[in-house]
Design a protein around this nucleic acid. Structure first.
Length: 1000
RNA sequence: GCUCGAGUGGUGGAAUUGGUAGACACGUUGGACUUAAAAUCCAAUGGACAUUAGUCCGUAUGGGUUCAAGUCCCAUCUCGAGUACCA
């Protein structure tokens, strides 16, 4: 009987689908286990071998847990809103839903072929209205909530309204906008409805705010920082300006501290935790208020708030710097400085944020003419603006202490501002001194003689006493912009009355994406939904109606923005628990049973996006009592990237520019020679000759070329030719035309691209290519699709091979050559059960060796799976099968448990073996074999005997021998005496069960 | 610049946490079977020296700790990832 993997795999994939083998129930006496993969964006290119790496690992773990008796939830779905489908729609007019559907189909086919144990009955798609109904629902919950710092959690907005009605907002301790105006209970009651709405918006967890964006007028769209190169758009090179836009934001900053603290509770990779920690960017310091001085031209004093981590250096302040966008700038600038300041502001507005950040060396700024008063010395301090101060961080203003901060120092040097020294015994003539731990403060009044920590305490105390400052913790994390000017995303359940946003009642969800004729922004610069003609909300009928019916009485305009990519992925893991539920995002029964994700596998690129936002939403859902856990995933693993092995061929290029220059007007060569060269020789040679890699070093390139020219019966004495320089240019060829021995299929490659067709291929025997490891990408022609491998070797071989490549978390190159190893293993495994005549297995009792091999394998494989060390367990299987083969084992008592051991890794062959062994049920829930230590007990050990740390020979000794016994046995051995050559050892180290080392 | 991670044969990678470096594969070489090929099986395979016995050198580099270091410590180099005027 042959191992016919194609037949076997198709058979079992069909069986699993038909019998719903992996469908997980929400009710079970079994313990739950939730294994989750980051769901993919279904791109048009389909899967390449890098994608399934994490899926295979999680699938092994899920299958293993089923064998271990768990009720396993292992779902899959699609993050199906996104830009590529929209871009394709813009180019072709094809509706993104159609593109998405096609791509999902292809993904599904590819995934099915690899034999994953997903519970497909739970599939979700973020672009499905039945799914995004609940994304909209969460948005409404956020809108109806505020963050109470006293209880340190999100609460219903009603509790805030109750507070306002009772006592106004003075005592409310909330996370809210900065520009809150104080009011009393009586004031509140006197406010109009829209005034009240406006105030509440300043407290809601999702709110409308003016946000600075990179606006590209020509494209009519907002660009991300990385879409801008040198201040112009990457596509088209149009100018980009920073512009304020009203957009939805999420008050994630309310959760900054809890997001930080939560990291201690979860088993996630350290680098990932580090990058979230950095991203949140907590820093402790003080908020200090400086007051501007009243002058002849500016008749009023304004407070300037600054945040500083070094309040102890306050006596070193010699100027202040505001961000150019700072609100106070126009108010405090003196008439004489107005022109200069305005010119500066205009110049900086043109630079994108990224440019500003990338260009650290150029120092620029302008003096406002205003002075602030030092809170202690009462000295005047000049107020500058400079773009090294970012509007979005802290208060957008800094107290500049040039002696203690390098940027302040450079700025002061550049503009000739004094640099007072407040550090005892420190030289600041060359650079600022920013080491806070190792100095004593001087020239600072009451802080003199104090070290950093004490000085900070003292100064905060003094500032608080005079009401000009307080200790403060600041976070780098900013509120997340939640609006996108795109079509292919979730619509907001929002309409506008008098410019104020209103939520549509949850019972009318989903608000489905309207049809539009064009997927581009409108001519007036509105988002694509501005093209929709049926996009207004009728409050009476509670439905979406035609725009022309808008009367702002009962029918109102709907929001034109859509939600960002991360909206749909921030609660999908919970939705999987009860995906068909139309009455709730998930039932409480379902969430209470499944609780949270036990194992989450995905790429590290989501560290500060998806993984941070999801934690934020989860904490919010927790506060509101919808979920029982405030962290959604207990353990997370980042799988490494699979790189591709690109193939290159040596293309011959001729460099003749220098010859041409030489000839212009020199009369050195005849026109005929030149013509002959350009018309006859160049077209034959330049870019038209490919040389095998093995000849590259061995053969002289010019003789290769001369040979070709002779074959073509061309004149090799052309004087131009003589002067030419020839060189090789490495050119990508598609890896599918190259075999495992780096040999190119020349015939096939000629049809690859037109310029390869009539080219000449120079080689001896086989055409060799060179190889290089690069990122797997279509443009590098090194993409390997799993389909062909499944076809040629089978899914089980692919699964084993992907795991065999190396540790899961490490990035590693793909090289198809090695797959014959795991494929060979499967064939060998098969031959353990079958030969040409059929089944070999029988009921004989296993031998001692058989049992030893089996149980050592059980032990190792179990340990490996628990440690996510899948590569080593594949080796273990190989060793096991090698041993059982040479033992000629045929005992069912060995071969049955072996099939279960292999099953998580190579499920198709395992199912087939299981059935052939006489079972009628799927192997999927067969209990995992139990390791029995007694089979591994040894009575003796091969001791390595070392001399001065170098192993010289092995000696078999009983394991129950004690130290003295071992030493005596070793010393008595003839090889020991030979090594010692009569010397007496200084010392003999004996570690029973491990090693013997003789010193001397 | 800062933070984190990694450097082991021709290649992917093992190494029980300080105790036989190179498991298991790929590749290469030789052999068996075959008319032949495929498939399969057997043997060799870190380097140098040596007829054998064996010796020496070897885990990026240089030091150190130890009876013993791929593993621990210090310094340096290289590569990769993330992040970047964060006051």
């Amino acid at each position: 009987m042959q191992y016919n993997f194609n037949e076997i795999e198709a058979k079992w994939q069909k069986y699993w689908a038909k019998n719903q083998t992996f469908k997980a129930g929400n009710n079970s006496d079994k313990e739950k286990f939730y294994v989750l993969d980051m769901f993919p964006y279904p791109s048009g290119a389909g899967l390449h071998v890098g994608h399934p790496l994490g899926y295979i690992a999680s699938d092994i773990y899920a299958r293993y847990k089923r064998h271990k008796g768990f009720n396993v939830l292992h779902p899959m779905g699609y993050d199906s809103f996104g830009l590529p489908a929209e871009q394709y729609a813009i180019q072709t007019g094809q509706h993104p839903a159609i593109t998405t559907e096609t791509n999902i189909k292809r993904y599904r086919e590819q995934l099915d072929k690899i034999g994953f144990s997903f519970d497909w009955s739970r599939e979700v798609r973020t672009s499905n209205p039945k799914y995004y109904k609940w994304t909209q629902w969460v948005f409404i919950q956020l809108f109806n909530s505020w963050y109470n710092k006293d209880t340190d959690k999100a609460e219903d907005i009603e509790t805030l309204i109750a507070l306002f009605e009772k006592e106004g907002n003075a005592k409310v301790n909330a996370v809210c906008d900065d520009d809150i105006v104080e009011f009393s209970a009586a004031d509140w009651k006197g406010f109009s409805n829209s005034e009240q709405q406006g105030i509440l918006l300043q407290y809601r967890l999702t709110y409308l705010a003016e946000t600075e964006v990179n606006w590209c007028p020509a494209l009519g769209t907002v660009l991300a920082n990385d879409e801008i190169v040198n201040g112009v758009s990457e596509r088209g090179g149009h100018p980009v300006v920073r512009k304020k836009m009203t957009q939805w934001s999420m008050r994630i900053t309310a959760y900054a501290q809890r997001l930080l603290d939560g990291l201690d509770k979860i088993d996630w990779p350290q680098p990932l935790k580090d990058s979230q920690t950095n991203w949140i960017g907590r820093s402790e310091g003080a908020l200090v208020t400086f007051k501007t001085m009243v002058s002849d031209t500016v008749g009023k004093s304004y407070p300037i708030e600054v945040f500083t981590t070094r309040p102890d250096t306050i006596f070193g302040v010699s100027f202040m710097t505001l961000a150019p966008e700072h609100d106070l700038v126009p108010k405090i600038t003196t008439p004489e400085q107005k022109a200069e300041v305005n010119a500066y502001i205009e110049a900086t507005a043109k630079r994108s944020e990224r440019d500003r950040m990338a260009d650290v060396k150029t120092i620029s700024g302008a003096f406002t003419g205003a002075y602030a008063e030092h809170p202690f010395t009462k000295e005047p301090i000049p107020v500058w603006i400079g773009d090294y101060v970012l509007a979005g961080y802290g208060t957008g203003a800094v107290m500049s202490v040039p002696c203690g901060d390098q940027r302040d120092y450079d700025f002061a040097k550049h503009f000739n501002i004094p640099i007072p020294n407040i550090f005892e015994g420190v030289d600041i003539s060359e650079e600022a001194f920013s080491d806070k731990g190792s100095t004593i403060i001087a020239n600072s009044d009451f802080l003199n003689g104090l070290p950093y920590k004490k000085a900070v305490k003292r100064i905060i105390f003094e500032l608080e006493k005079m009401g000009q400052g307080e200790g403060k913790i600041n976070y780098r994390l900013r509120d997340a912009v939640f609006s996108r000017q795109r079509y292919w995303g979730e619509p907001f359940p929002v309409y506008y009355v008098d410019g104020l946003p209103q939520m549509i009642d949850a019972e009318y969800l989903p608000i489905t994406l309207p049809e539009v004729e064009k997927y581009l922004p409108t001519e007036t610069g509105e988002p694509p939904l501005g093209n929709a003609t049926v996009w207004a909300w009728d409050r009476l009928k509670a439905e979406v109606v035609k725009n022309e019916l808008i009367d702002n009485v009962n029918v109102f305009p709907l929001e034109l923005n859509t939600m960002p990519g991360w909206a749909g992925s921030s609660q999908y893991f919970n939705r999987y628990m009860d995906p068909g539920n139309d009455a709730a995002i998930f039932s409480q029964d379902a969430i209470n049973y499944w609780q949270d994700v036990d194992l989450y596998i995905g790429g590290s690129e989501h560290a500060t996006g998806h993984l941070l936002y999801s934690r934020f939403w989860q904490k919010f859902m927790f506060d509101k009592g919808y979920v029982p856990k405030d962290e959604f995933a207990k353990k997370l693993i980042n799988q490494g990237m699979i790189t591709g092995t690109s193939a290159f061929i040596n293309k011959v290029v001729i460099n003749w520019d220098h010859v041409m220059l030489d000839t212009v007007g020199s009369g050195k060569y005849s026109i005929e020679d030149q013509k002959y060269f350009l018309e006859k020789i160049i077209p034959i040679i330049n870019g038209k000759v490919f040389v095998s890699e093995d000849m590259r070093d061995e053969e002289d390139l010019s003789s290769i070329i001369y040979n070709i020219l002779e074959d073509e019966k061309l004149d090799i004495n052309n004087p131009f030719l003589k002067e030419c320089r020839f060189s090789y240019l490495k050119t990508h060829v598609d890896v599918t035309y190259v075999n495992n021995s780096d040999e190119l299929d020349v015939e096939k490659v000629q049809n690859f691209r037109s310029d390869f067709k009539d080219a000449k291929y120079v080689y001896n025997g086989e055409f060799k290519v060179s190889r290089e490891v690069e990122k797997m990408s279509k443009s590098k022609y090194n993409v390997v699709s799993p389909d062909e491998i499944c076809e040629e070797y089978g899914a089980d071989s692919l699964r084993l091979y992907e795991m065999f490549l190396g540790p899961l978390e490490q990035s590693k190159p793909w090289n198809t050559a090695g797959i014959s190893g795991t494929h060979g293993f499967l064939k060998k495994l098969w031959r353990l059960y079958f030969d040409e005549k059929g089944a070999k297995f029988n009921d004989v009792e296993p031998t001692k060796d058989n049992l030893k091999t089996l149980h050592k394998t059980i032990k190792k494989v179990e340990e490996d799976i628990e440690n996510f060390s899948f590569n080593t367990s594949v080796s273990t299987f190989m060793i096991c099968v090698n041993e059982l083969s040479s033992q000629k084992c045929t005992s069912k008592k060995i071969l049955e448990p072996l099939a279960i051991l292999v099953s998580p890794y190579a499920p198709h062959i395992a199912e087939e073996l299981w059935e052939q062994l006489g079972h009628s049920e799927s192997i999927a829930t067969a209990p995992f074999p139990i390791y029995d230590e007694s089979h591994l007990v040894e009575s003796s050990k091969q001791y390595p005997i070392s001399f001065n740390g170098k192993m010289r020979f092995m000696l078999e000794l009983p394991l129950d021998l004690d130290k003295e016994g071992i030493e005596a046995a070793v010393m008595a051995h003839e090889k020991t005496q030979k090594q010692l050559e009569g010397r007496t050892p200084k010392k003999v180290i004996v570690v029973p069960g491990k090693i013997v080392n003789i010193v001397g």
